[in-house]
């Protein structure tokens, strides 16, 4: 069974449904995802990403580029990348309107923090997290400049919308031979400007070196991460052992661990049930959790010593938890 087209849910959270799929540039499609029950999606802020679980446990992270004042839909823009081990090809070629896809997060390692102004630097599909930042800077009436480069104009998502911002948004296709002088722009940025950069490794490295003399925290960057998960996300049942009582529960991947524990008569306090508030946090004594929360950072997730049973589940055959 192809998990991406089934209605399997992650923990207590249902898989999201694709309601729109639109080509927005050459090789880039934009997906709109909604809760199949018509409910609100967990809140997010500019810079946030979600993690999609695609076929065979393949997971990929995509920045949210929609409007967070609309709580009912997420939008992501996906570049077709031959190097993505089939993830982007799958999204481009197979995933269709009406299909379901499992989503973890949202998480945010690229938060928009207070500043007197923003210098936003995007390379290629790295534009996506910056789109909500532009909207937010506009809303707050703060000065901003976007420096957006890509290989060819027709591959550059959102480039067509940038013309409405006039001189705020500088869009350059490098195939014209025209290059942005990022070092000079960073040098010229007024004090109090925060710099946000998202793009390919080489570009982020270059921007980092140009910002080396700036105080800590002035540059915020997000690299395209293509790190593999330690254990593939599973589509088979697994066992949860409750260490304090010795109870063993067998769960289907779509079931909520929280509900199963409570149904087994073991009190486990929760609150938001969205992996946001942290109330149901439970130590993991053995096994590898499949984290779907918005709380832990990457390092904390990799420790495999705690999880949030309201949305997270197991990546291993067995999970022993301190409940």
């Amino acid at each position: 069974m192809n998990p991406a087209t089934s209605s399997t849910s992650a923990g207590g959270r249902p898989a999201l449904r694709v309601t729109e799929k639109k080509s927005i540039a050459a090789g880039v499609c934009r997906l709109t995802l909604v809760d199949p029950r018509g409910e609100r999606l967990p809140d997010w802020e500019p810079g946030a990403h979600i993690e999609l679980t695609l076929r065979q446990g393949l997971t990929r992270q995509y920045s949210l580029c929609g409007d967070r004042w609309d709580p009912m839909a997420y939008q992501i823009a996906v570049l077709r990348e031959p190097s993505s081990r089939g993830a982007s090809e799958y999204i481009h070629d197979e995933l269709s309107v009406g299909d379901s896809v499992e989503v973890g997060g949202p998480r945010n390692n690229f938060r928009m923090v207070p500043a007197e102004g923003y210098l936003l630097i995007a390379g290629g599909i790295g534009i996506t997290p910056l789109i909500p930042m532009i909207a937010q800077a506009e809303m707050m009436n703060l000065p901003w400049t976007l420096l957006y480069s890509g290989r060819q104009l027709e591959t550059m998502a959102f480039a067509d919308q940038m013309s409405e911002y006039g001189a705020h948004a500088v869009v350059r296709a490098t195939d014209t031979g025209d290059r942005l002088d990022l070092a000079a722009s960073i040098e010229a940025a007024p004090r109090g400007t925060k710099i946000y950069c998202c793009g390919p490794e080489a570009m982020v490295d270059a921007v980092e070196s140009y910002c080396a003399r700036l105080p800590a925290g002035m540059l915020r960057r997000e690299r395209f991460a293509a790190k593999e998960r330690q254990a593939p996300v599973r589509s088979l049942p697994y066992e949860v052992e409750l260490a304090q009582t010795g109870k063993r529960l067998v769960l289907q991947p779509g079931e909520s661990v929280l509900d199963a524990v409570v149904a087994a008569g073991v009190p486990l306090l929760a609150s938001c049930r969205e992996g946001l508030c942290g109330t149901c946090e439970t130590p993991v004594l053995a096994g590898v959790p499949d984290h779907r929360d918005s709380i832990l950072d990457a390092r904390e997730r990799e420790r495999n010593d705690t999880f949030f049973p309201c949305v997270s589940r197991a990546a291993s055959d067995r999970l022993v938890i301190d409940a």
Partner: peptide
């Protein structure tokens, strides 16, 4: 009782 979900601490972004 499972008091989970009470709103004594609020709920949502201002919880």
């Amino acid at each position: 009782r499972d008091p989970s979900g009470h709103v004594g601490f609020g709920m949502g972004i201002h919880r």
